[in-house]
Each structure stands twice: as structure tokens, then as C-alpha cells.
Amino acid sequence: MKLLKTLAILSTLGMLFVLIGGALVTKTDSGMGCGDSWPLCHGELIPSEITFSLVIELSHRLVSGGVGFLVLLLSYFSWKKIGHIRETKLLAFLSIFFLVLQGLIGAAAVKWGQSDFVLAIHFGISLISFAAILLLTLLIFEIDKKFDAKSLIIPRAMRIQIYSMAIYTLAITYTGALVRHIEASLVCGSWPFCTNSNPFAFGEYNFHQWVQMGHRLVAGLLFIWVLFLFIHVLKHYKSSKIMRYGWTVCFLLLLLQVLLGAMIIFTGQNLIVALLHALVVACFFGMLSYFILLSSRSARYEKDSSTN
């Protein structure tokens, strides 16, 4: 179990580096740093001519490959050691499947090129892989003190909201990735409107501005939704630390995400701010995924209770 826990921690942290590395590749326009060669770089095992974009792209490939190996080991040993836990096998499969899928999309983009709309899917797939690895890690650490589903009852209406919010968040990450890929991050010079001096001049928007403002709109609606559920949890789950603390973290993460989105405009797309923007949404989606796990357990307990 010590080896399994070490693998889990390394895989989770490694997947965060993969996410940040992918965002860094996009932000620095280093996607073709190795030319159209894959997995080699300009057709060479050791590149003879080193450039900044080559270093970024090659580093991302090496980190992704190393993390892929760790995830493969994690999935195998998890299946073998804690396969009796209901969620283990599914999460092990999802961890590998989506990690391989994102790698294939990245390779296809290098070899044959892809549209910005297809490339924007890449980040969402990485998020799903990260969430699966994170949940697998939580399952491994639960072995010491198993979580009892009976101690937390999440009503069906709340479960539906959690599931829906996770899907909606993936859709928002797609719009955010699309903003990056079509280079629309700074097409609106103001915040929260595209032009604060003339906020409703929708007829003057070009395509890139519509994408940017569309992303801001759906992100704003998510913030309102999370705020609503946060207040609801504080009122109705006073005895549940997991719900209260968990949704407090969710709210604070999304608040930080909104502030970072505004800072991207105010700082002229500062690279550190942009990478933090990607990191925070990954943490937020990870928290949502944990509540999906808790909701699934609560639903199963509810079903078993009604059957008995």
C-alpha cells in the first residue's frame, strides 16, 4: 500500500504538470516546436538545433510520457490491490483511456494538423483523466479509514445538480480552450464587458469577440450556480463537514478562477496568470468529481435501503 500511495501521489501531481504543460504549449505557441515529427523531434532522437518552442514542446512530451507510465502502473496495482472497491476498476480504465486519447489527439495535431475547434477538446479530455487519477488516489487513501456512505445522504435533486454542473464545467473549459487556441484572449480590452464604455454594442462584435464574451457569460453563470449551491449547503448540511468544507473550497476556487480570468485582461495575458487560470479550473473540476463519487455512493445506499 505504501508503493501504491506513492504512485498515486506522483501520478496526480504529474497529471497536473501535464495539464499546465499543455496550457504552456498553447500560450507560447509551441505546438509545432518539433515540426511535424512525432514522437521524435524534427525526425531526430536528440535535436541538433535547440529553440525555445522546441524545449517547451519536447518537455511536454517527455513529462506526458513519464506520467503515462506512472498511470499505467497505478491502474495495474490499483486493480490488483483494491479491485474489490466498486469504483476502482472504472477509474483505472478511465485514467488510462483518456490519457492515451489526449496523447493521440496531440500526436494527430502534430502529424496532420487539426482545427482549433478540435484542439480545444484536448484540455477537457486532460481534465477527465486528471479527475479519474485524483479519485483513484482518494480511494487508495480511504483504505486506512473507509468513508461510510451512510454518514452522508445527498438527495436526488442535489445529485442531479452536481452531475449537471460537472458536464457544464467541461463545456466551459472547452470554450476557454477555444479562446486560447483561436488567440482571442485579448480581443476585448475591458472586463467584465468587451468594451465597458459601450457594453451592449453586440452588433460590432467580430467572431473572436463573440467567443470571448460567450466564455465570460457561461463562466459567470457557473459562478452564480456555485454560489447558490454553496449557500444551500451552508443552510442544509450544517452537520456534514465534507459538504460544508468541500463546497467552501469549490466556491473559493471558482471565485479565484473568475479573478484570474479578469487578471489575464488587466495584465495583458501574463503567462503566470494564464497558467494559474488553467490550474485552478483543474482543481475545481477535481472537487466536483469527488462530489460525483460521494453522490454515486449516496444513490447506491439509497437504492439498497429502498430494496431492503
Rank of each mutant, 00 (worst) to 15 (best):
R61G: 04
Q102C: 01
K5I: 07
G268E: 13
R300M: 09
D36K: 15
M287C: 14
F200E: 07
F130C: 09
D36A: 12
L3A: 11
M213T: 06
S115R: 04
G203V: 12
L19Q: 06
T173K: 08
A177G: 13
V55I: 15
L13C: 11
V218K: 01
K238L: 12
S305F: 12
I96W: 07
E44T: 09
A131Y: 05
S64R: 06
H208E: 15
A184D: 13
N270V: 03
H277A: 09
S306N: 11
L70K: 04
L127A: 10
K5N: 04
L3I: 13
S239N: 15
P199R: 02
S295K: 08
E142K: 11
L101A: 15
K241W: 07
T28L: 14
H84L: 08
L10H: 00
V211E: 00
H232V: 04
Y174Q: 05
Q212S: 05
L16E: 06
L70T: 13
H181A: 00
H42I: 03
D29Y: 05
M32P: 04
N270C: 00
P155S: 00
L74K: 04
L3Y: 10
Y301P: 01
R159G: 15
L104S: 00
L62N: 08
S289Y: 06
L229K: 07
G176R: 13
R159V: 08
A132Q: 01
L24M: 03
I140P: 06
H208W: 01
G113R: 00
R156L: 14
G124W: 09
S37K: 08
L136C: 06
M213V: 08
L119E: 05
A166Y: 14
F69H: 04
R61N: 02
V110K: 00
S298Y: 08
Y168K: 01
S115F: 05
G65D: 00
G261H: 08
S289Q: 03
A149N: 10
S190N: 15
M263D: 11
M165W: 01
Q212L: 08
T173A: 13
V25F: 09
F202H: 03
I128N: 09
L178P: 01
L276S: 09
G268R: 14
L256S: 13
L99A: 05
G66C: 11
P39G: 03
L221V: 14
D116T: 15
L178E: 03
V55H: 04
E57H: 14
L138R: 10
T51S: 15
C34E: 12
Y205I: 04
N198F: 07
K80C: 05
L40Q: 04
E87Y: 02
D144T: 06
S48R: 09
V179N: 07
G261D: 10
Y205F: 06
H277T: 07
G268S: 12
H236D: 14
M15V: 03
F130E: 07
S129C: 07
